[in-house]
Design a protein around this nucleic acid. Structure first.
Length: 110
DNA sequence: AGTATGACGGTTA
DNA sequence: CTAACCGCCATAC
C-alpha cells in the first residue's frame, strides 16, 4: 500500500520515506522549512528534501514545507499560500510568519 | 565509477 | 530589497 506512490516511476528510496514520514506529521497550520526537515532527520540538506517532495510529495502535505525565507518554493507559491492561509497560518505578502508557524517536530501539547 | 541536477540555505556585493 | 556565488548531499543517468 504505498499510498505515497506519486508521479515518480519507482518506489521511494529509504531516505525518501523518512522525509515523507516527517512531512506527513506536520500539524495543520504549522510549517517546517526544507532545511528543518533535513536537520530533524540528521541527514541530507534542504536540496535533498526538496528533491524528494518534487518526486514523491504529491500524497503528503507538501504545502507545509517552505523555504527558510518563509516563502513557498517557486512553482508552489500561490497553491501553498492558499492552503496555509485556509489552515489559519499567518501570511504576510508571500511569506509565512515562521516565528509563529514554525514546527519543531514535537507534539503540540498532547 | 564519475558527472549533472535540484520545490535549499547562507553569505556577500 | 535584488543578484550572484558557493557549499551542501541524495538521485538520476
Amino acid at each position: 500500500m504505498g499510498v505515497r506512490a506519486g508521479v515518480g516511476g519507482g518506489e521511494p528510496t529509504a531516505y525518501a520515506r523518512t522525509v515523507l514520514d516527517v512531512v506527513e506529521r506536520i500539524p495543520p497550520g504549522r510549517v517546517m522549512t526544507y532545511g528543518d526537515v533535513a536537520e530533524y532527520l540528521g541527514t541530507g540538506t534542504g536540496r535533498t528534501v526538496g528533491a524528494v517532495l518534487r518526486r514523491y510529495g504529491s500524497e503528503v502535505p507538501w504545502w507545509r514545507v517552505v523555504q527558510a525565507s518563509g516563502r513557498p518554493a517557486e512553482p508552489l507559491v500561490q497553491a501553498a499560500l492558499a492552503r496555509l492561509s485556509r489552515e489559519g497560518c499567518a501570511v504576510h505578502g508571500e511569506r509565512i510568519a515562521l516565528a509563529a508557524a514554525r514546527w519543531d517536530g514535537r507534539p503540540i501539547r498532547i
